[in-house]
Amino acid sequence: MSNSLGVRARPDRVTGAAPPAPPRRRSSGLTGLAYAAPAAVIVALFFLLPLGLVVWMSLNKWPLLAPPTFNAPGNYTQIADNALVLDAVVFTLKYTAVVTVLLFSVAFGLALLVQHRRPGIGFFRGAFFLPAAVGWATATLLFFGLLSDQIGPLNDLLEGIGLIDAPVSWTAGDPAVAFGSTVTLVIWRWAGFNMLILLTGLQAIPNEIYEAARVDGASAFQAFRRITLPLMRPTIALVLCLMITGSLLGFEQFYILTRGGPGSSTTSVVMVIVREAFVRFNLGSAAAMSVLVLAALVLLNALQLAFIRRRNS
């Protein structure tokens, strides 16, 4: 890992806008279409069709094994009466707020710590990113073992230094403790990933700006507030967007680590949808919830995009 993660100062090509292609003599429209056809078929069949289908399903009573019957807007009105859904929405929003604040602080802190080239920095960058190299479900399962009383080292360690008197159940005892475990897992697994994105933003800021500020007598804190934060705004917006979307759609960290418990205290919205579809076999109702989540997230993404655009211009 010695020369690891040599993040380049500037990405070699920035998003979107390609230079306009000059008109081409040889290419008929059909040739291009033929090359794009496989992608078009996949998009139509496995993206557009399911998008339409989920809306249609949400208007029907759609049991797993029997034929569907039209019942609009039954699936939507039932959601309002479902106490589990409302609890899950409240929990997911709370979880998203906590994770976004903590994860962002840790990731940004790490990025600032590893932003300058110095001996051994590649090793530290690699070490912080290492958990992100492991699959998300794998990492969750790893944490489940780490926190277990049977083989996990945590209880012995904490008892050894006198912080706790008796073994603690980290995933199934106190709801607040189980919640803390999921947040810790998410920070451990995703901090390095977000650090890497923030690091590219930091490194794209030309050094001359900092030098000019230093010559003018700016303190390190002033330089951070007046230079780093404003210039990092697009990267920060991207990272926050990824964190918020990822948290709102959280599933594995609850389904695997806490099983949504204790009780249903850590049951997220996506868990409710999956349970509605494949435990209660009510696909129509699950589709209605999906449509609402979809609409909320598309709206959120559009708002964030508009926000980023305005700040950029």
């Binding site: 992608a39 998009v43 989920v54 399903m57 979809l294």
Partner: peptide
């Protein structure tokens, strides 16, 4: 249009589209 549609896949949350895909 095709390019925008391909990028739009990123906008759609992964778990919500799996239920219709199961039926499809």
């Amino acid at each position: 249009l095709l390019f925008v549609l391909i990028l739009a896949i990123l906008m759609v949350p992964y778990p919500t589209i799996l239920i219709p895909l199961y039926v499809l």
